[in-house]
Design a binder for these strands. Structure first.
Lengths: 148, 148
DNA sequence: CAACATTAAATGTATGTACATATATTGCAG
DNA sequence: CTGCAATATATGTACATACATTTAATGTTG
């Protein structure tokens, strides 16, 4: 669906403004679709993203700093998202022995199990599947250029 | 900067995954840049977006329903954002005489003044200025295709 | 017209974001 | 070794999101 119809705005100031609004709208659309897949599993999108980072480290622990570094949104509050995951027994948190300021965060077996279940669901609805490989590459290159 | 370097992840599962992550990351990047421009004026990005919708209606009033319809993120809570704008005297809220369930929301002179000041700042840093017109159009078309 | 559904907005609760500040530990200069 | 800066994380506050529920007004149907 064209963005004009999606947000019921027939005309834009210029193509740049239109692309910007489409960028924000489409990203929200994609994220909401993804979040709906997690909801049934009792975790949110940010919680899922952190679990994935922890799985990537497994069996090594991660610190909060490492999580922040790897998260897409650097300024968000990893500490409190880990709180929620800890409550659900999906991660463990122990003071790092070699640096008592830091905290070692590890994904639990329950966390790994949950991720593998979610993986299966996500594989059924692959991301951006309407785009060809060439289009996906082109999109990524255009996005890189925005941030140049 | 390439997304690989931006988030320090050298390799992705496939080009679709890479494009998705770039989409989320770049949109966050753009939005944060914009939000920083509003901060100095004491309003947030959602508040700015609602003010713009109200200016588009001016001098006609808008209802909460109309705001939700026009907002990029449909499920957000327009009512409480209007609360904040009302506190700052940027909008007024009066019960609609012809339908006492609805509320007429209008932008004030102070609101219009604020928007015109912000417009000037934004015009100095145009959006997506790194893209040519052709690239902006191409980007918008690719985004439309994602949502098909 | 009375009962009930629908509509418009507000409110409640949990979560997350953004930014500042606090707390504890470590490293280092003198 | 002491004092102080730097580091790692946690906490506080304001705002926003997501979703369910509530309240009030209006429509509708028997």
């Amino acid at each position: 669906m064209k963005i004009e119809d999606a947000i019921k705005q027939p005309v834009f100031r210029d193509v740049h403004q239109k692309a910007l609004i489409n960028l924000v709208y489409t990203t929200g659309w994609v994220q909401q679709r993804n979040a709906n897949q997690f909801k049934d599993f009792g975790i949110t999108l940010p919680q899922f993203n952190i679990l994935r980072i922890l799985r990537g480290q497994h069996p090594k622990p991660a610190t909060v700093n490492l999580l922040i570094e790897r998260m897409l949104d650097k300024t968000s509050n990893a500490s409190r998202i880990v709180d929620k995951l800890e409550l659900k027994k999906l991660v463990t948190r122990t003071v790092c022995p070699s640096n008592r300021r830091a905290v070692d965060i590890c994904i639990t077996e329950a966390g790994l199990d949950l991720l593998s279940k979610i993986d299966k669901v996500i594989d059924l609805n692959p991301v951006l599947s309407n785009l060809t490989e060439a289009e996906a590459t082109l999109l990524s290159d255009l996005l890189d250029k925005i941030r140049d």
